[in-house]
Design a protein around this nucleic acid. Sequence first.
DNA 1: AGAGAATATACCTCAAGAGGAATGTTATTA
DNA 2: TAATAACATTCCTCTTGAGGTATATTCTCT
Lengths: 125, 125
Amino acid sequence: MELVRIYECLCDHTRLRILNLLSKGPLCVCHFQEVLREPQVKISKHLGYLRERGLVECERQGNWMIYSLPAKQPRELAANLACLQDCAQDDSTFRRDIAQLKKLSPELTESSPCGCITAGTARRR
Amino acid sequence: MELVRIYECLCDHTRLRILNLLSKGPLCVCHFQEVLREPQVKISKHLGYLRERGLVECERQGNWMIYSLPAKQPRELAANLACLQDCAQDDSTFRRDIAQLKKLSPELTESSPCGCITAGTARRR
DNA sequence: AGAGAATATACCTCAAGAGGAATGTTATTA
DNA sequence: TAATAACATTCCTCTTGAGGTATATTCTCT
């Protein structure tokens, strides 16, 4: 995987926030919307961008698309994602996002796919 | 230092090569030209870009501008430069650049500023 | 089959930045 | 002081990508 391609993915704030959330586990699009508070198009396009370049994988689960970090990562990618995680700890936005994520779905890993089954009713826009 | 700003600096191949060379120590512009075999404008502009964003520092030494990595680096920058160095080891271009650098000026650290005193006569374009 | 929910894509506008040609700037040397 | 070396900057063209609006696609459920 080309180093430059990786860095191109990392040089947008929204994408960094997405990758930061994904470090905690798979998520569906509506969760990103909930946590990041950004319009659907924006999130969907950034996810598409990351997917095309192999920074994330996705799988359909009924009506939901579950995004996750690649199961098998080339060394350069793993190293940079680890570095990002390290740096994210110092940043208030990233920390707040994680806090918000836990708040929205404390049961995340327990409930079905990604806790989305109830998320539909919880969303308002 | 904003993470995104750092990544913006890293998402160009020429800049990565520059930073890779700088990891071995300070260098002047003519050395970059020698090793990277890229036109002067291109190198100068990328160095300017990196300088504006605090990824490199420079100091005039007579006719030469000596570029180096910042003496004092914020954590995010240090982490990412370290990560880059780690990844660069797997890449043939980066390895070749370093080899070329050593070949051009094996005495680098011993001779004056950056070994540039003789570099002028060595260049041909 | 039809409706609605979740997500993706097309199309448009705007800004940033890459690369090159020409020219400017600063310092050294004759 | 004039010439030259080493760099920087300006101006121009072209591509990429960000963000938004509107619309399409894919499932699920009734």
